[in-house]
């Protein structure tokens, strides 16, 4: 199955304003009706990938992260560590059944290791 990039995430100090901007610009649909109140964004086309918007702490920066799908987050984190990555947020089993960890690559870019909900 490989390890596809399955989602982008904007981390924003003002997530509501960012969401409004992209919705107005591209007509993207936002649905926050989930356990975390996560602003899931649908870009409205089968091509490309969908994304989401998450709040940043006041001292943080606005940034974009990519989520890479993996079968086994623990194994992927262990491998990433041997390659010089740092775990920022450990593997978390999210309330809607998917799981996520946030990692800093050796260049200092953060990205997500993502496992979708298992039916």
């Amino acid at each position: 199955m490989g390890n596809p990039v399955v989602q982008w995430q904007i981390v924003a100090k003002d997530p509501e304003a960012v969401t409004r901007f992209y919705s107005a610009l591209f007509g993207w649909k936002v649905n926050a009706n989930n356990a975390l109140g996560y602003r899931a964004v649908e870009t409205g086309n089968g091509r490309g990938i969908n994304g989401g918007v998450w709040p940043s702490p006041p001292e943080g920066h606005n940034l974009v992260q990519l989520f890479v799908e993996v079968d086994d987050i623990d194994a992927a984190l262990a491998k990433a560590a041997t390659l010089g990555a740092t775990v920022i947020v450990p593997k978390s089993e999210l309330p809607d059944g998917d799981a996520l960890a946030i990692v800093l690559d050796p260049a200092g870019l953060s990205f997500g290791m993502y496992r979708p909900a298992r039916e």
Binding site: P15, E16, L36, G37, Y38, W54, P55, S56, P57, V89
Partner: peptide, 8 residues
Amino acid sequence: DQVNVALQ
């Protein structure tokens, strides 16, 4: 949003 920032 502040709950989610705290949670993170």
